[in-house]
Design a protein around this nucleic acid. Structure first.
Lengths: 199, 199
DNA sequence: CCGCCGTTTGGACGAATGTCAAGATTTTCT
DNA sequence: AGAAAATCTTGACATTCGTCCAAACGGCGG
């Protein structure tokens, strides 16, 4: 048996366990998720987690990286197809609102982990990496909008990301407590944000 | 001795304990703060906490309310003195940047608790109340800016708050990891945000 | 078939947690 | 001063946590 196969099998199980852990984390949040509750989301016993992960921190950071993989893949495409600036803004707004509507608990977890990284240095690098890729995603859209509108962005990439993220996070908050129209407001807010950022 | 005095003394100690708890929470975050570590921030023993608070949740929610009291008091004044729209924008930007620079750990705690409220229903009402008062504070500034500029806001109060909060939260993130110029960027970002929101 | 090795289990451990109650101490009232 | 009420300390409790480990399982090459 080739060495590669063993490693692949090992990595595959790590991914499987991490995915289960992400479901548990999305349910309960970082503060309330123990290794045993994670194990209950799998068909294995709690001891196994320490066979595939050195400790809890390694498991969680692996989960964060895994979340990022799914995340950037989702946002990878997107900008290309719009013919006008308005179309791009609408497409971006619809995409973000759909992302929020499809997996609100995952985004809640994202904000939880991002906040935890401010207290737990171990998460900081991975979280920062995800944040950067999200900022890039937003900036590609803003740049694309400016190009189609024959204008230039009047803000920095990080500023644009902060503003988009503010809208997104508030929409998440309101969506989770059941506020009607939170997603529609998000769509409108994002659509109208684009023209505010170029000149 | 009047009954009122007893109640006052009781309430005063509750405040004292809650303030110590807030310091501990600001240090460690909600997930890592236990009742015993809170007690270590006081001159009392851990058992006393259950004399003044029924359980941990009541203590934390009391802390949140207390945080709000200090918070709204800080932001209460502010709008009145500006003579021009630009002055108001600058004053608001300076105020928010100063608030962040003076007590970054308290604001980190705020975002932590706001996120926890998405998992722990017990905090939800108090957090929402603080969020509303912050939104009002922002909206007073946006309204005031629009009046001085002879224009009208082109966004809703919640939208304005989301955008301001996005800038503030990112500035906090970058400030806490030591990014130079995070506060200056926040000031500039807020100053430039005002004209984007009126027409 | 046996023995090996990667997997998996289930229980044990010490530490830490929230909660509680019994007693000591301090304050207050008569 | 003495009684009563309040404040506070101390130690214990059950539970849960992360971690570790000895043993059992399972497939595959000999």
């Amino acid at each position: 048996m080739r060495r590669g196969t063993r490693v692949d099998k090992f990595e595959e199980r790590r991914r499987e366990l991490a995915d289960a852990a992400l479901l548990a984390l999305a349910d309960l949040g970082y503060a309330r998720t123990s290794l045993r509750t994670i194990a209950e989301h799998t068909k294995f016993s709690h001891g196994l987690l320490h066979y595939y992960f050195a400790d809890k921190v390694e498991l969680i950071t692996y989960c964060v990286r895994r979340y990022k993989a799914a995340c950037v893949q989702r946002y990878e495409g997107g900008v290309g197809e719009a013919a006008t600036a308005g179309e791009l803004a609408t497409a971006c707004a619809d995409g973000l609102a759909a992302a929020l509507g499809d997996a609100p608990l995952m985004h809640r977890l994202w904000y939880d982990l991002r906040t935890q990284s401010l207290f737990e240095a171990a998460f900081r690098d991975d979280v920062a990496e995800i944040d950067d890729s999200l900022q890039d995603m937003i900036w590609r859209n803003v740049r694309g909008y400016a190009d189609l509108a024959g204008a230039e962005p009047t803000c920095s990439p990080s500023e644009a990301y902060a503003l988009f993220d503010g809208l997104f996070q508030q929409a998440l908050l309101r969506h989770l407590v059941g506020t009607e129209g939170a997603l529609d407001d998000l769509r409108r807010g994002i659509r109208e944000l684009f023209p505010r950022l170029v000149a």
